[in-house]
Simulated assay, not measured.
Amino acid sequence: MMMSPATSSTGTRSGRGAPGGFATYAAIRQLGRQGVAALIDRCCRHAVALVGGIGQLPGAQVLWPAQLNQGLVRFLDPNPTASDEHHDRFTNAVLQELLADGEAFFMGTTWRGCRAMRVSVLNWQTAETDVARAIAAVSRCLVRLQTGRQ
């Protein structure tokens, strides 16, 4: 993601003004109250489906079920004697594999001392087919790493 000078140090938009406010106003004006509510509900539903679907994959562990539009998933190293540190490394490896695969984009985070994949749905264009494609991509990458196939 490209960051403007206003966002580069904090990761947030520090300036206020017409551009952001106008976009929000235009969206509300175009969609109306029910349209905005439907958009939010849809993103939240997709987040629940993504976290739940990924969490059902062998070797995946839901750390935080989707709340609103975000949840957290961790990937467990298949070695039966693996430690938390091994699980953290394996989670990072899955994230790297997903980035290289290019089908879905997820970022990593550390939550309560554990590495995790942040699942976040923000785009108004996200559809059920996108959710299914993302789950399939995670599954594909996870299997590649679990079996040692590249």
Rank of each mutant, 00 (worst) to 15 (best):
V51G: 01
R115H: 15
R140D: 06
G35Q: 12
Q56C: 09
A38M: 02
N123C: 11
G15P: 05
E128K: 09
P65A: 11
V138E: 03
D88N: 14
A49L: 14
D77H: 11
N123K: 07
A66M: 10
Y25W: 14
Q146R: 13
Q125K: 10
L76F: 04
Q34T: 09
R112A: 11
W64H: 12
F106I: 01
T91E: 02
A127M: 08
P78M: 11
I54K: 05
A127V: 13
A82S: 05
T24H: 10
Y25S: 12
N79F: 08
G59Y: 11
T24V: 15
Q56M: 12
L99Y: 08
V36I: 15
Y25A: 15
L122C: 13
L142H: 03
Q30S: 10
G148L: 06
W111Y: 15
E97V: 05
P58V: 03
V62R: 12
A66L: 07
F22P: 05
P78L: 11
W124R: 11
A116C: 02
R115A: 14
T12L: 10
R42C: 01
P78D: 11
V62Y: 08
M107S: 12
V143L: 06
R42L: 04
R140P: 02
M117N: 06
T129Y: 00
W124Y: 06
R149N: 00
R29D: 07
V48R: 14
Y25F: 15
Q146P: 01
L39G: 11
T24G: 10
V48H: 14
R45T: 09
G113D: 13
A132M: 08
A26V: 15
L145V: 13
G11L: 07
L145W: 07
I28K: 14
N79E: 11
P65E: 14
V73L: 08
L72D: 01
I135W: 00
R89F: 04
T110E: 15
A93D: 01
A47I: 02
E103Y: 07
G20V: 11
G55E: 09
A47K: 06
I135L: 01
A60M: 07
R16Q: 08
G20M: 11
C43R: 15
L72K: 03
R13W: 10
G148P: 05
A82M: 01
A38P: 00
S139F: 04
I28L: 12
V62I: 12
I40C: 09
R133N: 13
E128F: 07
A132K: 15
D41P: 01
D77M: 00
